[in-house]
């Protein structure tokens, strides 16, 4: 009993550490990546390659005063950043980084991640509502409608995977995708459904991840040039820092989930590469996805809110529904 409790605490601490470290160094990676894309150096003063920049930034943010705007709803205002960070960290608990490395595997891991993911938009709503700022309010409303619109195709796509694998256990989903790249759910030639449309499903899922994490080109919640900074316009100090970290933690979660569902988790692309530990493959895959996130952000302009909703309701949802039906049919046939 006490061992399990210790286990859980240890898991949460590791998850927080992993999330915080990732968030901090993804900011660095993002800024360096942006610099590379925009032909400028990016942060390069503090430490080798500017590697001390993130901890120093964190120190600066922590040293700042937390101001609460007059007339704001204090409790919600303070709670919102914590609430935004919380689901991101909790989701880490059930993510299998390899066959061995998983804090706590459960047979409804996928469901748990989605449950936490949808509570994330609540934090944005609280932040926007409680700051007593019109821009923040507009951004909160945008974020919620965006989250609602993009959770549907995301879930439908996930259900397709669940249909194919017959389980919601993330470990099990990964296990079924071995041993080679042809068994991954993105190219399911050798799996039981033989559905050739799965690459589209992967694209839909990836797009939804972009939208769910409020990343460009779907960063309508933030929209610097329209709503200034969106829901965190009134946040300074570590309140802002937490939102920032939550954004990157969510990116990591999104990439992990995409990797698990479509890219074969810890499996190497070819069987003879199995001598490299699974966790290396897993991290490699998620960082490639994250690099794609960064690349997209600095390349594309922002969409509009109606363009975004149209994309979800008129294109992504019908396609993912069709794919779901097709998969179900194919499973019956083969």
């Amino acid at each position: 009993m006490s061992l399990t409790l210790l286990n859980v605490i240890f898991a949460v601490v590791v998850a927080i550490a992993f999330a915080a470290l990732n968030a901090a160094y993804l900011v660095w990676a993002e800024r360096r990546g942006a610099g590379r894309i925009q032909r400028r150096p990016g942060p390069n003063i503090n430490g080798p390659f500017g590697l001390f920049q993130p901890p120093l930034d964190g120190l600066k943010l922590m040293a700042k005063q937390l101001t609460i705007p007059g007339g704001a709803d204090k409790i919600l205002f303070v709670a919102a950043p914590v609430l935004s960070m919380f689901p991101a960290i909790m989701s880490f608990v059930t993510i299998p980084f390899s066959e061995m490395i998983v804090a706590h595997n459960m047979n409804v891991g996928l469901l748990m991640i989605f449950a936490f993911a949808s509570s994330g938009s609540m934090a944005l709503l609280f932040a926007g509502w409680s700051s007593r700022n019109k821009y923040a309010m507009m951004s909160a409303v945008r974020s919620v409608s965006q989250a609602v619109a993009y959770e549907i195709p995301m879930l439908i796509t996930a259900i397709t995977i669940v249909l194919m694998t017959g389980t919601m256990d993330l470990m099990e989903i990964v296990r079924q995708q071995g041993p080679s790249i042809l068994h991954w759910n993105i190219f399911p030639l050798l799996t039981n459904s033989h559905n050739l449309l799965m690459p589209f499903s992967f694209l839909i899922f990836f797009t939804c991840t972009l939208a769910e994490t409020n990343r460009a080109p779907f960063d309508l919640g933030e929209a610097e040039s329209e709503l200034v900074a969106g829901f965190h316009i009134e946040y300074g100090s570590m309140g802002f820092g937490l939102f920032f970290m939550a954004e990157y933690a969510n990116i990591v979660i999104g990439s992990c989930l995409t990797t698990i569902l479509f890219l074969g988790g810890w499996h190497p692309p070819l069987p003879f590469l199995g001598f490299i530990p699974g966790v290396v493959w897993f991290l490699l895959k998620i960082y490639i996805l994250i690099a794609t996130f960064i690349w997209i952000r600095w390349t594309f302009p922002r969409t509009t809110i109606y363009g975004l909703l149209n994309l979800s309701w008129k294109i992504l949802i019908p396609i993912s529904l069709f794919n779901l039906l097709l998969t179900a049919g194919l499973l019956k046939v083969f």
Binding site: Q38, R39, P217, E224, P301
Partner: peptide, 16 residues
């Protein structure tokens, strides 16, 4: 203008 629309990189290229 492109930055108004949310694309950052073209500004840097144009400035160069």
């Amino acid at each position: 203008f492109v930055m108004d629309l949310g694309g950052f990189s073209p500004l840097m290229y144009a400035l160069q």
